[in-house]
Every structure is written in C-alpha cells, then in structure tokens.
C-alpha cells in the first residue's frame, strides 16, 4: 500500500485546523497518514498528537522552518517524508511547497482538490467554471482546499517523534512590511465581507470594517472598487486577477457578480449578497440574497451580529 503523508499546515506558529481536514482527506485515499509537522521547536507538534485517523506524528525540526523558503522547505521535508502520497493544504504557500516537493521527487502535483473517490481527485479548473477529475497512479503530491473535508476529531493519541532536518535557504528576508490593519487578509480568513462599486465611496468601507471586526472577518473588494478608489489596495481584490478565496462565509455588498469576481469566491461555503438590483448575477450564487441598498441593510446586519456576539 502507498504510504500517506500529511504535511501539517502551520499558521502563526501553531498547527492550523485544516491539518485535521487533511487527515480526513488522506483517509478517503484509503489509509491512516503520518503527520509531518515542520517546526523550529518540536513542542509545536504536540497539538497533532490528538488528531484521530492518523498513524503517527513526526516533528520535523529545522531552523529552515523559521521563515518560508520554497527550496529549503522542500529539501528539509523531502529528507523526512517517505515515498508515498503527500497531502498539503491549498494555501498559496502550501501549494508552492507542494509543487516543489513533487518536482523534487519527479512526481506530479494535483492542486486544490475538493473531492476524493478512491484514486480519483477532483479540482476546480477554468476559474471554477468546470471541475476536473484526474486519476493518480502511485506516489504524487496533492493539495487540498480548506473547508471541504470534515476535520478529523481530536480523540486520537498519536505517538510523536522528533527528527532533525535541514535545508538551504535560497531567499533572505530583508524587510518585513506588516499590514497597516490588524485585520486578517482575505486569503487567510474564514469569513470575508467584500464591497464593490455599489459602496459609492471608499469611505463607506468603514461599515464593512465594523462588521468584519464584529465577526473576526477580513474585508475584500471587487476589482471595480480597487480600480476606482486609490484607498482600496489590490491586496483586497477577490477574483480572477485578485485572490481566490474559499471561506465558510462570503458576504458580497454592492457587487454585481461578474464572472471574474465569481472566479475568486464561488466555492465559498455560504454566500450572502446585498445588492439593490434584484437582477444582479450575484444573486444566482447566493445562499441568502437581500435585495436592498447597503445603506438600509448593513446597519441592521451590524446590530444583529453585534447582539449575537455580545
């Protein structure tokens, strides 16, 4: 049987919950994976000890994991992982790592998997306008989208071992430019509230920010908003030429729902649309559509949510 290996997703120095989803995805491929945790301090791996459905945990310890460097990470993880099917999360960084690892082993990589049936893997292609199912034969590297597979329960008790490893860095950080706001980036957030040209002015984004702060969400934008208003940076743009996001909840406000915007957010688990035009295409993709101006709807949404969170 092919060995299954999950590379733990690390965010802010701890194991991210998508790691438990990767274990479920590995189980769908027909086995219990080992979990490899890239870390500088082996205690980070302790949290993986309780993920059910895994066979064991390896803390792969290296100074190289202090900062992401594709070449060094691939080298260091390649040295620890046995041959087999490797699963990573589908964040931009982990997709990059997945591609590097696959190439290092002369294997193919299958990105953004959202369904697994035996050896067949399905991913969105053409910006989500179609799905592609491929068959893998033998070892490969596979990245799996978040919020698709259920998280494995934390009822396990996996043995944890520590392996030292190393990789040569090919890049060096010279300057770190923190985001001005403490708010999450759309690429990282589980809830996103985005504004479009219908917001009328960048100043009105404060209403989206208030809701984002209530929910711990990120604020996104359509390209029309980014292109029209200097104050809305491209880093907020969702869509074809912006970021592809896959949150649990996406709230689109004053966004018409152009195909290129949909390309970036249509796979969100739940979509709420607020738009004054009942015929806006975004409503065809919304789980909850509210035909209203944002001026009417956002204060109600904000006060109801604030009441819930209080």
């Amino acid at each position: 049987m092919t060995e299954l290996i999950v590379i733990a997703e690390i965010a802010k120095g701890t194991i991210h919950t998508t790691t438990s989803e990767l274990v479920t995805a590995a189980n769908a491929l027909g086995g219990s994976p080992m979990i490899i945790v890239p870390c500088t301090d082996a205690s980070v791996a302790d949290a993986a000890g309780s993920i059910a459905g895994a066979s064991k945990v390896i803390a792969a310890k290296s100074d190289a994991f202090a900062h992401y460097d594709a070449a060094a990470w691939a080298e260091a993880l390649d040295a620890v992982a046995p041959q087999g099917i490797i699963l990573t999360s589908a964040t931009p960084q982990s997709k990059d790592l997945a591609a590097r690892l696959a190439a290092r082993r002369n294997l193919s990589v299958v990105q953004d998997v959202v369904a697994i049936r035996e050896n067949q893997l399905t991913s969105p292609v053409y910006s989500g306008k179609a799905m592609q199912t491929v068959a893998i034969s033998g070892p490969a590297v596979v990245s799996v989208r978040a919020n698709v597979f259920d998280a494995a329960p934390s009822t396990g008790s996996n043995e944890i071992s520590v392996v030292d490893t190393t990789g040569n860095m090919a890049t060096a950080v010279q300057e770190f430019m923190a985001r001005a706001s403490q708010r999450l980036d759309v690429a990282e957030a589980n809830i996103i509230i985005s504004g479009g040209r219908g917001m009328g002015s960048p100043d009105n984004f404060v209403h989206l920010e208030a809701i984002a702060d209530t929910l711990g969400a990120a604020v996104g934008a359509s390209r029309a908003a980014v292109d029209t208003w200097e104050a809305i940076p491209h880093s907020m743009q969702v869509g074809q030429t912006g970021k592809t996001v896959n949150p649990n909840l996406y709230i689109a406000v004053g966004i018409s729902g152009a195909i290129q915007h949909l390309a970036g957010m249509r796979s969100s688990k739940y979509i709420v649309a607020i738009n004054k035009d009942a015929d806006a295409p975004i409503f065809q993709h919304a789980d909850y559509g509210i035909v209203a101006t944002w001026e009417e709807a956002l204060p109600v949404l904000q006060s109801t949510l604030a009441g819930m969170m209080a």
Binding site: L107, A130, M131, A135, G289, I290
Partner: peptide
C-alpha cells in the same frame, strides 16, 4: 502519470433564499 478522467460542470447550487428590504438582514 496523472490522467484526466472527466470534466464536469460545477455542482449547481440549490436556489438560495431571497429577501426584500434591509430589515431582512436581521
């Protein structure tokens, strides 16, 4: 070593719920 088995259209989303007026936000 990876072969395409099939392409398909994305699963159709069941029709969502729709509301008129801002008060529905609650």
């Amino acid at each position: 070593s990876v072969t395409i088995v099939a392409h398909s259209m994305p699963p159709a989303k069941p029709a969502g719920k729709s509301y008129e007026g801002g008060a529905a936000a609650a």
